[in-house]
């Protein structure tokens, strides 16, 4: 049992995934508030937009670490989400600041529905990742 770089990556990913889970929960709550009228879309977009890039960056960061650690299986596991993130960001509405959400279009039911669905799917993904990393970490620690 040795503490390898891979093990370190898994531990770090475990922590960061927990952070991402919080992000995504915040995201879900925010859209739910929008849907139920509790928040003004401008305020809500202002609070959500700054979180988009950090979330993507964190995810890409630990995936990159896995690549360095040569955990290809894990990298493959994360690739679809990274690709989705990049595409999503490329197709964002015209805006000068960072972020994805435009207060003028976010209230469209399609947009809201999509954002909410995205939130739930990502929550599921991160939860699965979390346990996967936990398992992998132990596996790496034990096996090496």
């Amino acid at each position: 049992m040795a503490f390898t770089f891979a093990a370190f990556c898994y531990i770090l990913a475990l922590i960061l995934t927990a952070v991402l889970i919080f992000f995504v929960i915040f995201h879900i709550i925010a859209f739910d508030e929008l849907k139920t009228d509790y928040k003004n879309p401008i305020d809500q977009c202002n609070s959500l937009n700054p979180l988009v890039i950090p979330e993507y960056a964190i995810h890409i960061f630990f995936t990159f670490l896995f690549l360095l650690a040569f955990q290809l299986g894990t990298v493959l596991f994360n690739m679809p989400l990274i690709i989705y993130h990049i595409r999503r960001y490329m197709n964002r509405p015209v805006m000068s600041g960072m972020g994805l959400y435009d207060p003028t279009s976010i209230m469209n039911a399609d947009e809201l529905g999509r954002a909410q669905k995205e939130g739930w799917v990502k929550l599921g993904f991160y939860l699965i990742s979390f346990f996967y990393y936990l398992y992998s970490m132990i596996y790496v620690l034990v096996s090496s």
Partner: peptide, 17 residues
């Protein structure tokens, strides 16, 4: 029934406003 999308010139402040 619920409103899906609005068309026109305005700012949508909440789901029906």
């Amino acid at each position: 029934l619920s409103i899906h999308t609005f068309h026109g010139n305005f700012f949508v402040r909440s789901t029906d406003l």
